[in-house]
Amino acid sequence: MSLAGKAALVTGASRGIGREIALELARQGANVAVNFSGSEAKANEVVDEIKALGQEAFAIKCNVSNTEEVSEMVKAVIEQFGRLDILVNNAGITRDNLLMRMKEEEWDDVLNINLKGVFLVTKAVTRQMMKQRVGRIINISSVVGESGNPGQANYVAAKAGVIGLTKTTAKELASRNITVNAIAPGFITTDMTDKLPEDVKAEMLKQIPLARLGEPKDIAKAAAFLASDDSAYITGQTLHINGGMVM
């Protein structure tokens, strides 16, 4: 198990990609703090599954766009595990609308969670990782952060922002042996994508050379690799996992 003895925090880990990443890190031997903001019951299920794998886990509620809550969360994780080696910034929401109809509030909500949240949690864990002289930060971006997508001006802006933030954080922290990378998932089957209309899904499928939708585990396996010592020489990169949808 490549992550034995490591401590991880995964934001937005109660469902979808975050859930699968939390489980995969645990399968590789890590102890995992399972962050959620709304779905406490779901988060507890993930915790139970991780414990069944023989690793430590606990659920922790936090809105990642709130500085105080973030600081409390990171403090709790470090108290619980005594260290923090892996941060996966996965928490994200969508508030889709055409640009012309998009309300300022829809813009702000998405930017606050999907981009500011990454900044806040990263800032909060940096101290501990700098002291340890080792750390892995993995930010979940999106294929649309690279390609753009009608109806998602807010989400796309945030996800493109995550790529830039990843590169800057990677440069700032490289001398402390902290690597920072992004994963840009394509069309992955989760609650988030289940909400899309069937015709939109069919249209997207046509654009995927590997001719299938991705699964959360396609992302989780890559996250576990980027969290491991095997990826020590990779930093500031964005790994596109999209079945060839965007190359």
Binding site: M130, E172, L173, S175, R176
Partner: peptide
């Protein structure tokens, strides 16, 4: 010291 060193010193 670089900027990050100073941050660490303060820590």
């Amino acid at each position: 010291a670089d900027s990050l060193d100073v941050v660490e010193l303060v820590m």
